[in-house]
């Protein structure tokens, strides 16, 4: 049965159904409802909710809990995600699986609390130090976001990587009917063979991001890179919407992509054939597919709630095969369908 749910709450419930029983977090708008939902819900499912003293502590609690091989998660919004970058780098180095929900708001600095997509660089290029990557998933509807939670945990454990669900304040705050996913049975989850649980009858295990010998640390890094390569080969996801006959293809993700879907309806009614290419994995980015698409379309328009972040990856994919244009607003201002339609018209006409 479908339920009308807020984005933050739907994501939280889906995470619990995917088997998450450990949540650490710190209140920040526009995602505090997720934290509050976990505070209420975790005790009901015999899980653990802990409000930390800061996002710095949160991410380190996540580190500790992830060391034990359990499904752990947190949620935050942009300034909080910045504070977590230290721990994210350590977790990536220690190859720990965990889920981060970043409900992006306007920045930089304290910014505002309205929707934004200006943490794309931070999430996909590594906001912390070192050569690391995290898998970044960008749902565009609440249903997609809820469906994604199980997949996120599966990816995190399959590759021992961090997974960020990158959404904006709009997906966090809006309501939409959601069909909640099935419950994952706890017995389906096997304790990983690297988990720190106390060396009872086995050799002690160590989980760290550390080796002072550069050649040893290089080996660790090459192992990470090997993982990232596998993820890039196997886990790229995207959606194509009406691109077959498009004279202009819009590249957009998350909330922007769903707004663009409405624009496409408008544009086609006025005789402009517009298509949408929507990266679902922002890292790994669908370079190859976008490269192919760009051979057959003259104009590509990237639309973002930023002043141009994903467009850099779009350019890397397209090279010179078609003209790459950009339209974006940031700081919490959401481009409306009419504005985007105008931007399209300017390019086509």
């Amino acid at each position: 049965m479908k339920m009308l749910m807020k984005g933050t709450e739907a994501i939280a419930e889906a995470a619990i159904r995917a088997g998450c029983r450990l949540y650490f977090g710190y209140p920040i708008t526009p995602q505090s409802e997720l934290t509050e939902y976990m505070a209420k819900r975790m005790p009901e499912v015999k899980g653990t909710f802990l409000q930390s003293e800061s996002e710095v502590a949160t991410v380190n609690m996540l580190y500790g809990a992830a060391c034990t091989g359990r499904k752990v998660m947190t949620s935050t919004s942009s300034p909080g995600f910045s504070l977590m970058q230290e721990g994210i780098s350590y977790m990536a180095g220690a190859e720990l699986p965990a889920i981060f929900i970043n409900v992006m708001r306007g920045g930089p600095g304290l910014g505002d609390i309205q929707p934004s997509q200006s943490d794309y660089f931070q999430s996909t290029k590594g906001g912390g130090h070192g050569d690391y990557r995290m898998i970044v998933l960008a749902p565009h509807t609440l249903q997609e976001a809820t469906n994604m939670m199980k997949e996120a945990f599966d990816l995190a454990f399959k590759y021992r990587m961090l997974v960020t669900i990158l959404v904006d304040g709009m997906i966090g705050q809006m309501m939409e009917p959601v069909e909640l996913p099935e419950w994952t049975k706890p017995e389906e989850f096997e304790e990983p063979n690297w988990a720190l649980t106390g060396a009872n009858g086995r050799k002690p295990r160590k989980v760290t991001s550390f080796d002072l010998d550069p050649y040893e640390l290089e080996k660790m890094n090459l192992r990470y890179q090997e993982t990232y390569k596998k993820v890039s080969q196997n886990e790229v996801k995207y959606e194509e919407f009406k691109i077959e006959d498009a004279e202009i293809t819009v590249v957009a993700y998350g909330t922007m992509a769903r707004i663009v879907k409405t624009v496409i309806d408008y544009a086609r009614k006025s005789g402009i054939k517009v298509g949408l290419f929507r990266p679902i994995t922002l890292w790994p980015f669908p370079y190859e597919r976008l490269s192919e698409i760009s051979k057959n379309v003259k104009n590509i328009l990237t639309v973002e709630m930023s002043y141009g972040q994903m467009v850099e990856d779009v350019k890397l994919a397209v090279e010179e095969k078609s003209d790459v244009h950009f339209y974006g607003r940031s700081a919490g201002v959401v481009p409306t369908p009419a504005e985007i339609l105008d931007a399209i018209k300017k390019i086509v006409r």
Binding site: K2, L4, I113, G169, Q173, M174, M175, E176
Partner: peptide, 20 residues
């Protein structure tokens, strides 16, 4: 309104303007 429309079998979105 959104929830009632959902019970009518329709698709809906509800988007608040939110402030501090």
């Amino acid at each position: 309104i959104a929830e009632a429309a959902m019970f009518e079998g329709l698709n809906v979105t509800w988007l608040p303007s939110y402030g501090p």
